[in-house]
Design a binder for these strands. Sequence first.
DNA 1: TCACCTTGGTGAACGTCGTTTACTTATCTA
DNA 2: TAGATAAGTAAACGACGTTCACCAAGGTGA
Lengths: 248, 248
Amino acid sequence: MTITPSTLTEPSAAGQALPTRRERVRAQTVEDIKTTARQHLVAHGPTGIQLRAVARDLGMTAPALYRYFDSHEALLASLVGDLYSELADVIEAAAAPSQGDLHARLLGSARAFRRWSVDHPAEFTLLFGSPIPGVGVDEDGPEHAQARRFGQAFGALFAEMWEREPFPVPEHIDPAMHAHLLDYADHIGITLPPAAIAVFLSCWVRLYGAVTMEVFGHVSFALADAEPLFEHEVAGLMASLGLGSPTA
Amino acid sequence: MTITPSTLTEPSAAGQALPTRRERVRAQTVEDIKTTARQHLVAHGPTGIQLRAVARDLGMTAPALYRYFDSHEALLASLVGDLYSELADVIEAAAAPSQGDLHARLLGSARAFRRWSVDHPAEFTLLFGSPIPGVGVDEDGPEHAQARRFGQAFGALFAEMWEREPFPVPEHIDPAMHAHLLDYADHIGITLPPAAIAVFLSCWVRLYGAVTMEVFGHVSFALADAEPLFEHEVAGLMASLGLGSPTA
DNA sequence: TCACCTTGGTGAACGTCGTTTACTTATCTA
DNA sequence: TAGATAAGTAAACGACGTTCACCAAGGTGA
């Protein structure tokens, strides 16, 4: 077994970010832990991610995980960040200009969100279900930025819609909401007038409600397949935005 | 096999329902257990209800609780049933004919649902949050009837509205939904044409979405008080039903 | 080359949890 | 008054998250 001597040492004196060997294997271990944790998430739900079981699958013991994550909650929080990122990728792909006109892009984004949620119920539950005592997305930390990216995927679409041809908005909104709405828009990084933000939030509430009820099974006893209900709901949502006719 | 308390022995030779002394004290103990469990629910959330802690508060030891409930999950399920009942009481009171015309009764019911949910976030989470592995409302058992009563509180209101003066409905709905919608209506015990049921479901999705996002704090970072947002959302909902002008 | 320090791992232990078992005591019944 | 039944306890089991003391490598500077 001959070792190729060409890449053993890094001679770059001025290097700043190239990872050392230790850092590489450590990053790989972190990735393995999160991959295994996600498998347990899929198999047993958010409450079924157990440090001892994850370590067992990796051929390690539980205390070793504490070299990589501060606690059980920290591992979950890290997973939450990854999932927000993955979901943001999905939405951004569906919202890309290459997907057609604005109608098709918005409809496609809504469908992509439902598709991901229905296909990944455990992941969806971790992100959007009951808050878990220590796993909230705190104002700082990487999870916050990743969650923000997800919100921005939808928000940017609305901002573009508003810029191209404004959708109908309520004439006057509660002045108590003005500052809150602007804060919220700033929070997810979009700039829209308050009335338009209210419409955006209303759309998100309807989308969130429809998907959550389907994934949580609060409607499943009688509606084995909730897709027609979702399509009906999202069609009404599009109509309220003045996007009545499908174009794609 | 959930044991409904105090049904093991039937010594009453003549009478049918007069409880013996043992049955009374047993029923009282069951009530005490559930009361204490709810206090822990309020204080520590759904995941914070621990048998040992509940027993400790009652001056008992944990195994004693197994004389009254089959398991931790059974206690939670029983609590779920009680909460559905309590919530049904609240909605029914707000939907009573004495509360004004149909507009006022529907608006009041929606507000009552939000009020109860915001005032009892832990209870709301237990009922409408992420499903807990063994605590689902199974098709039979007392919890199902109680959950059905809650659904019926809203459903009956829609049925009455439809009877008095039909609200606008979509012209044609997906035929794949027809049977599902009728099944669903039968499930919660109302009789409406499929298109009207679709409108009812859509309203419930919006209401559920708005309240869930507020209670779970998915909107709280920037919207300290989400009531204006809720009012805006429910106003749009009423308008879609043709109930534009407040009358009360 | 050798000593040293850092990193990543282990095994044992702590306290808590839900749950089961065997046993005891109180209460109701015949 | 004797026996059945209901309701409680103490002890134990296995699993959990977490901490601690310890150890064995890998990288580093004299």
